[in-house]
């Protein structure tokens, strides 16, 4: 059985470490290995059981906490080796904290496309913290929001209500597939964060625009929704999406959706830029609407162009 990995991303000072420290205090998050950038940042002193070496500590609830020494793939393999050798306790989940200024895509890609890591680990969910007081800062923060399965709006107690509503609206426009949770001091039910990994919910709350906003950089990023009446030919879709991600990978920050490929349930498609989760067949549709629906988060393309192109490709299949 693969070990689930929870990725926590978010800009500098947005509350990642506070969130992780509070999560680790929950008994149900025992047997977790946490990979952080700096041990001191996590505020684990009062949870500390003992120090294993200069970069690893054991927490009183059975969690292991270690700093990222090398690249993530090496660290994940090392964790397994040390667990199997009995150097650290058993763990059944890994939480990875990204650096605040980083685009999380390379980490997602390591978890999905490394030659070895996906044989042992499974990306369960991506959580992004957003500073409720200071909002989004720059392109990297927008990429973090786009990559998220759940958004945690931190410090809501320090922000004006109107400003918070405005920020939440902006988050929903960038990534309508991710629920937004307002969380004070990291106080959130772990299950609420971790159970969204398979949530096939797609646009609904805030209907994404059919056309992206004009502009450059961060301001041009928008979510676009496609709904297709006819079933989608999977082979043609695979050719189309791989081609799209190669040609426009830098501008396609996220693709998430449910595809009607002719079976009883839909196929769940989930990409973070060029990092693509293995598609998952769901047993049933989440509601009575059985049309294919896809959300594209990015810039430089329109719903009409995406739809026309996908339809043209679908007609190419010998079965289409």
């Amino acid at each position: 059985m693969k070990t689930p990995v929870v990725l926590v991303t978010g800009f500098l000072g947005s509350g990642k470490t506070t969130l992780i420290a509070r999560l680790l205090a929950h008994p149900e998050l025992g047997e977790t290995a946490v990979i952080v950038n700096e041990l001191g940042e996590v505020g684990i002193d009062h949870h500390l059981l003992r120090r294993v070496d200069e970069r690893t500590v054991l927490l009183a609830n059975g969690c292991v906490c270690c700093t990222l020494r090398d690249d993530l793939a090496t660290e994940l393999r090392d964790l397994l080796d040390r667990r199997d050798a009995g150097e650290i306790p058993h763990f059944s989940r890994v939480v990875v904290e990204t650096t605040g200024i980083a685009d999380p895509t390379p980490i997602v890609n390591t978890l999905l496309a490394d030659p070895l890591v996906p044989h042992h680990y499974e990306l369960q969910t991506v959580v992004a913290t957003v500073d409720g007081q200071h909002g989004l800062a720059g392109d990297e923060a927008v990429k973090q929001v786009a990559a998220a399965d759940t958004l945690v709006l931190t410090k809501p107690d320090l922000a004006a209500s109107a400003a918070l509503d405005q920020l939440e609206g902006r988050l929903e426009r960038i990534n309508p597939t991710a629920p937004v949770l307002r969380v004070v001091h990291g106080d959130v039910d772990p299950a609420t964060l971790l159970e969204h990994h398979a949530d096939p919910r797609l646009p609904g709350r805030a209907a994404p625009a059919r056309e992206p906003a004009h502009g450059h950089g961060e301001s041009a990023v928008a979510a676009i929704a496609l709904e297709l009446d006819a079933s989608v030919d999977w082979i043609a879709f695979g050719v189309w999406l791989t081609m799209l991600l190669q040609a426009r990978g830098a501008d396609v920050l996220r693709v998430k959706g449910l595809l009607d490929v002719g079976g009883d349930g839909p196929l769940l498609v989930n990409c973070v830029q060029h990092a693509v989760h293995p598609p998952v067949h769901l047993d049933a549709w989440p509601d009575d609407d059985h049309r294919s629906r896809l959300v594209f988060i990015g810039r430089g393309f329109t719903a009409a162009a995406l739809e026309a192109s996908l339809r043209s490709f679908s007609r190419l299949s010998p079965e289409g």
């Binding site: 799209l244 040609a247 426009r248 995406l306 192109s309």
Partner: peptide, 11 residues
Amino acid sequence: APLDPLAADLL
């Protein structure tokens, strides 16, 4: 050059 699936001439 990139092969763009959205290019009008390709479609």
